[in-house]
Write a protein that binds this DNA or RNA. Structure first.
Length: 599
RNA sequence: GCCUCAGUAGCUCAGUUGGAUAGAGCAACCGCCUUCUAAGCGGUAGGUCACAGGUUCGAAUCCUGUCUGGGGUGCCA
């Protein structure tokens, strides 16, 4: 990376120049403080750095400091100039060519070891199996999977986990709803007569509940069993059967959609089986109690979360004897921290969750519980995603699952997986997202994902045309290809700075040179983008970057013809196209978006 | 009330350890298809970075306060 090389240059220059800088005692914080940036104004060079921050350490004027540093920064591959407190670097083509060679020979552009110490458990989506995934789940899914791909590209080890919320009040609610839909269907078919009154409203009124009921009744035995009992109140056995069926039915729907969205999970954890049935909850509760962080009051059992900064204590076991949502969730997080690898070491050193912003108040109590159980709260991290507004017919509707509205499935059907995923991650997670369904569906040209995919497809097309024999449309004559595939392969393998010379020498127009340089510097900076995106859990850095590269490429395409009669020139330019194509394909892959070879 | 996220071009948004003239897409206007994909390119126009103070060589960015909007503030999940 060019940037890293320049920073190294700067550090050693600072060491070397210390005597001339009032005997500055150089330390790491100073060398780390250099902020190398790409100036907007081309007159300020290809890279620039502001040295004003050294003024307070050296008691010297910024321009003077810059001058001193300029004196010791010698490299025949660049020109260093001073403007005010800035050092401006004008890079020679040798630098750029080296960067290009690096990308061509890299098996995976942007790959780095910035997060190689991280062993991450990322839990996300984690919907109740009580209905279809909604649009917000789509955002967490796209966000989480992109973050996982990014972190892995930075050397982290990540496990994706889906926590199935299949215990608790909501499961009872879906069971009740499905049951009454069954009764409704049986009545409609005339199989059930008598004075059965359906409830005015169901806990889950959505139409999908009817589908669950239909599927349940499709089995003759189950239907007969329902008919044999009093319809006004289902037996415990019937309730259990309906609940189990509904869970499977709705969960498999969710899984199918996540599969389709290319969002895989290595691990599916059932709240009911994993926590309730195995007794993890009482164990955790005992641990909390032994440490003295619980007490009984008002017939309930409380957690002293105020001891950890929460605004009030929280109920763990309700007065009716059942647990709140918090208790199993604490047990779950206790388990996450307690998992061991083959050597008996802690399996993870980062417990990362993606939650909707509506859960933000929940963080202090969970962090408190983690601390109370003796785990490191610093390893616990919650990424809060702001909610999604659906815009239908220009009208904003709030997301929610209790009302009839567009589900994630509907949206994916309408706009496709690629556009959905790209759109969902293209805005910072902490800003609420307007998802305009009509726009995303109709907007082929307005949708940035197509812009990037088109740039990629265009690169592929050029690379194809380069080695294919063109056929004259009028005469039907078959001409020689611009280069043979074999020759291009050899050229690519032996690529070096000298062979790339034609790429730079052939563009005498400074404006064209500028576009080429901007493109190369952008490609060279991919690694930084990937690292920052992973570190800040911000895939939107990558969508932004992919759009920038695409724009720069389209612009280059306009000013410079790639395929020419001259082989060495053509081959050199094809290397640039190859580098763009590789980088865009990698960027799209990190977002879980496909990179089509033709459009 | 308290917690939290946001407020930047007509609209949707970038701008992460404070740096040179604040950017992009869409919408608007003017151009460009005989030529490797026009799902494209070039250009014009559009701004008191919500407001007021403060910190300093320097603030969209940091601090304080105010205003507006979203979310939260359950023995729901």
């Amino acid at each position: 990376m060019i940037k890293q090389k320049l920073l190294n240059h700067l550090s050693s220059a600072l060491q070397q120049a210390a005597p001339q800088l009032n005997n500055l005692a150089v330390d790491d914080t100073m060398t780390a403080a250099f902020r190398l940036e790409r100036p907007r104004n081309p007159e300020h060079g290809d890279y620039a750095v502001n040295v004003s921050f050294l003024a307070r350490h050296t008691k010297m004027a910024p321009p003077k400091i810059a001058e001193v540093l300029q004196g010791v920064l010698s490299d025949d591959r660049m020109i260093v100039t001073v403007v005010g407190g800035y050092l401006n670097f004008q890079l020679s083509t040798a630098f750029l060519a080296e960067a290009l060679v690096g990308i061509i020979h890299s098996p995976a552009p942007g790959c780095n070891d910035g997060l190689s110490e991280e062993r991450v458990l990322l839990e996300y989506v984690s919907a109740n199996p009580t209905g279809p995934l909604h649009i917000g789940h789509g955002r967490w899914a796209a966000l989480g999977d992109a973050i996982i791909r990014l972190m892995r590209h930075c050397g982290a080890e990540v496990t994706a986990e889906f926590y199935i919320n299949d215990a608790g009040v909501q499961m009872g609610n879906i069971t009740t709803s499905v049951y009454w839909r069954c009764v409704e269907l049986l009545k409609a078919d005339g199989l059930l007569s008598g004075p059965v009154e359906l409830p005015e409203t169901l806990p889950y009124p959505g139409e999908y509940v009817l589908d669950v009921a239909k599927a349940y009744l499709a089995d003759a035995q189950r239907q007969a069993h329902l008919l044999s009992a009093s319809p006004s109140e289902p037996s415990a056995e019937a309730r259990q059967a309906i609940q189990d069926f509904s869970r499977e039915f709705l969960l498999s729907d969710q899984r199918a959609l996540l599969d389709r969205m290319r969002v895989p999970f290595e691990s599916w954890i059932s709240e009911k089986e994993y926590l309730y049935d195995r007794g993890v909850i009482p164990e955790t509760l005992d641990a909390l109690t032994r440490k003295g962080f619980t007490y009984e009051a008002e017939d309930a059992l409380w957690f002293k979360s105020t001891e950890f900064g929460d605004e009030k204590d929280r109920v763990l076991r309700k007065s009716d004897g059942s647990f709140t949502y918090l208790m199993p969730d604490i047990a779950y997080h206790h388990d996450k921290f307690s998992r061991k690898d083959d050597q008996g070491q802690a399996r993870y050193n980062r417990i990362l969750n993606i939650w909707g912003a509506d859960h933000h108040g929940y963080i202090p109590r969970m962090r408190g519980a983690i601390q109370a159980l003796g785990h490191s709260p610093d390893q616990f991290e919650v990424l809060l995603g702001q909610l999604v507004n659906l815009i239908v017919d220009g009208e904003r509707t709030r997301m929610g699952k209790r009302r009839k509205m567009l589900t994630l499935q509907d949206v994916v059907d309408e706009v496709g997986v690629d556009a959905t995923r790209f759109w969902m991650v293209s805005k910072s997670a902490d800003t609420s997202l307007d998802f305009d369904v009509d726009l995303a569906a109709s907007a082929t040209s307005e949708n940035p994902v197509f812009y990037v995919q088109y740039a990629h497809a265009r690169c592929c097309s050029i690379l194809r045309n380069a080695v294919e024999s063109p056929v004259n449309v009028d005469s039907g004559e078959v001409a020689q290809p611009f280069v043979t595939a074999e020759a291009l392969q050899v050229f690519e393998q032996n690529l070096n700075i000298q062979t790339l010379a034609p790429l730079f020498d052939s563009l005498p127009d400074p404006k064209e040179q500028q576009v080429l340089k901007a493109l190369l510097l952008m490609l060279d900076g991919f690694e930084d983008v990937v690292r920052d995106a992973a570190r800040f859990r911000s895939p939107h850095f990558v969508t932004q970057y992919a759009q920038d590269v695409s724009a720069q490429f389209h612009s280059f395409y306009g000013v410079c013809r790639i395929l020419t009669p001259e082989p060495s020139l053509t081959q050199a330019r094809l290397m640039l196209i190859r580098a763009i194509q590789k980088t865009l394909a990698q960027a799209l892959d990190l977002l879980g978006v496909s990179a089509p070879e033709r459009m």
